Deep mutational scan, measured.
Amino acid sequence: HRQALGERLYPRVQAMQPAFASKITGMLLELSPAQLLLLLASEDSLRARVDEAMELII
């Protein structure tokens, strides 16, 4: 289940942060499945989480 969510998330994360897409997707997969579904449904929520992840990385 998580694998399938990751496969759906990755291209969207890659479009926002290509250099760190794998790392960010891995970080996002730590969230609950319900939270992941919310990110897939909301571009704004996904962008906010990706921005948060980038702050942790750099």
Results as ranks from 00 to 15, higher is better:
H1D: 14
H1P: 03
H1A: 05
R2M: 15
R2E: 13
R2K: 15
R2Y: 14
R2W: 12
R2A: 12
Q3Y: 08
Q3T: 08
Q3E: 13
Q3M: 06
Q3C: 09
Q3V: 14
Q3N: 15
Q3W: 05
Q3A: 07
A4G: 13
A4Y: 13
A4V: 13
A4D: 15
L5E: 05
L5R: 01
L5Q: 03
G6W: 15
G6L: 15
G6A: 14
G6Q: 11
G6V: 14
G6R: 11
G6H: 12
G6I: 15
E7I: 08
E7Q: 12
E7Y: 07
E7L: 12
R8H: 06
R8K: 14
R8D: 08
R8V: 11
L9F: 06
L9I: 09
L9V: 06
L9S: 00
L9N: 00
L9P: 01
L9D: 01
L9W: 03
L9M: 05
L9C: 02
Y10H: 11
Y10M: 10
Y10T: 02
Y10D: 02
Y10I: 02
Y10Q: 03
Y10K: 07
Y10G: 03
P11D: 10
P11A: 12
P11R: 15
P11F: 14
R12E: 07
R12Y: 09
R12T: 09
R12I: 10
R12P: 04
R12L: 15
R12A: 12
R12F: 13
V13D: 00
V13Y: 01
V13C: 03
V13G: 04
V13H: 01
V13T: 01
Q14L: 13
Q14R: 13
Q14A: 14
Q14V: 07
Q14Y: 15
Q14H: 10
Q14K: 15
A15N: 11
A15P: 02
A15Q: 09
A15V: 11
A15E: 12
A15S: 05
A15Y: 10
M16N: 02
M16I: 10
M16G: 02
M16F: 10
Q17T: 11
Q17F: 15
Q17R: 15
Q17Y: 15
Q17K: 12
P18I: 06
P18L: 04
P18S: 08
P18D: 03
P18C: 04
P18E: 07
P18V: 03
P18A: 06
A19N: 09
A19D: 09
A19Y: 11
A19H: 07
A19P: 03
A19T: 13
A19M: 11
A19R: 13
A19V: 14
F20A: 05
F20M: 11
F20E: 04
F20N: 04
A21I: 01
A21G: 08
A21H: 02
A21D: 00
A21N: 01
S22V: 12
S22N: 14
S22R: 08
S22P: 09
S22G: 12
S22T: 07
K23P: 03
K23H: 05
K23G: 05
K23C: 08
K23M: 09
K23D: 10
I24L: 05
I24A: 00
T25I: 11
T25Y: 09
T25E: 01
G26E: 15
G26R: 06
G26L: 14
G26V: 10
G26S: 12
M27W: 15
M27L: 07
M27K: 06
M27Y: 07
M27A: 11
L28D: 00
L28Y: 01
L28R: 00
L29H: 02
L29K: 05
L29N: 03
L29M: 09
L29I: 10
L29Y: 02
L29G: 02
L29R: 02
E30V: 06
E30Y: 05
E30G: 08
E30C: 09
E30K: 13
E30R: 08
E30Q: 09
L31N: 03
L31K: 04
L31I: 09
L31M: 09
L31W: 03
L31Y: 09
L31G: 06
S32C: 08
S32Q: 13
S32G: 03
S32P: 08
S32I: 04
S32K: 11
S32N: 12
S32W: 08
S32L: 09
S32D: 14
P33L: 12
P33C: 13
P33Q: 13
P33F: 13
P33W: 11
P33Y: 10
P33S: 15
P33N: 15
A34M: 10
A34R: 05
A34S: 14
A34T: 14
Q35I: 14
Q35T: 06
Q35C: 11
Q35E: 10
Q35H: 05
Q35P: 04
L36T: 05
L36C: 07
L36F: 04
L36S: 01
L36H: 03
L36I: 09
L36W: 03
L36M: 06
L36N: 02
L37A: 15
L37F: 07
L37N: 11
L37V: 11
L37H: 06
L37T: 07
L37W: 05
L37K: 06
L38Q: 14
L38D: 09
L38T: 08
L38N: 07
L38C: 08
L38R: 07
L38E: 10
L38I: 11
L39T: 08
L39I: 13
L39N: 01
L39Y: 02
L39G: 01
L39H: 02
L39A: 08
L39V: 09
L39R: 00
L39D: 02
L40M: 10
L40Q: 03
L40G: 02
L40E: 05
L40V: 04
A41M: 14
A41H: 08
A41T: 10
A41L: 14
A41Y: 14
A41S: 13
A41D: 11
S42C: 05
S42P: 01
S42V: 06
S42E: 09
S42Y: 04
S42H: 07
E43W: 09
E43P: 07
E43T: 07
E43M: 08
D44E: 14
D44C: 06
D44G: 10
D44S: 12
D44F: 03
D44M: 10
S45P: 01
S45A: 14
S45F: 10
S45W: 04
S45N: 10
S45Y: 12
S45C: 07
S45E: 11
L46A: 00
L46G: 00
L46T: 01
L46S: 00
L46H: 01
L46Q: 00
L46E: 00
L46I: 05
R47I: 09
R47E: 05
R47W: 06
R47Q: 11
R47K: 09
R47D: 02
R47M: 08
R47A: 08
R47T: 06
R47C: 05
A48Y: 13
A48N: 12
A48D: 12
A48C: 10
A48I: 14
R49L: 12
R49K: 08
R49W: 10
R49F: 09
R49G: 04
R49P: 01
V50M: 03
V50N: 00
V50D: 01
V50P: 01
V50L: 14
V50C: 03
D51A: 15
D51W: 07
D51S: 06
D51G: 05
D51I: 07
D51N: 12
D51E: 13
D51Y: 11
E52I: 05
E52P: 00
E52S: 06
E52K: 08
E52A: 07
A53P: 00
A53K: 05
A53C: 11
A53S: 09
A53L: 13
A53Q: 07
A53Y: 13
A53I: 15
M54E: 01
M54I: 07
M54D: 00
M54S: 06
M54P: 00
M54G: 01
M54L: 08
M54V: 09
M54T: 06
E55P: 00
E55M: 13
E55T: 13
E55V: 12
E55Y: 13
E55R: 11
L56C: 08
L56E: 13
L56P: 01
L56K: 13
L56G: 04
L56Y: 11
I57Q: 02
I57S: 02
I57E: 02
I57M: 08
I57D: 01
I58A: 14
I58Y: 09
I58H: 07
I58M: 09
I58V: 07
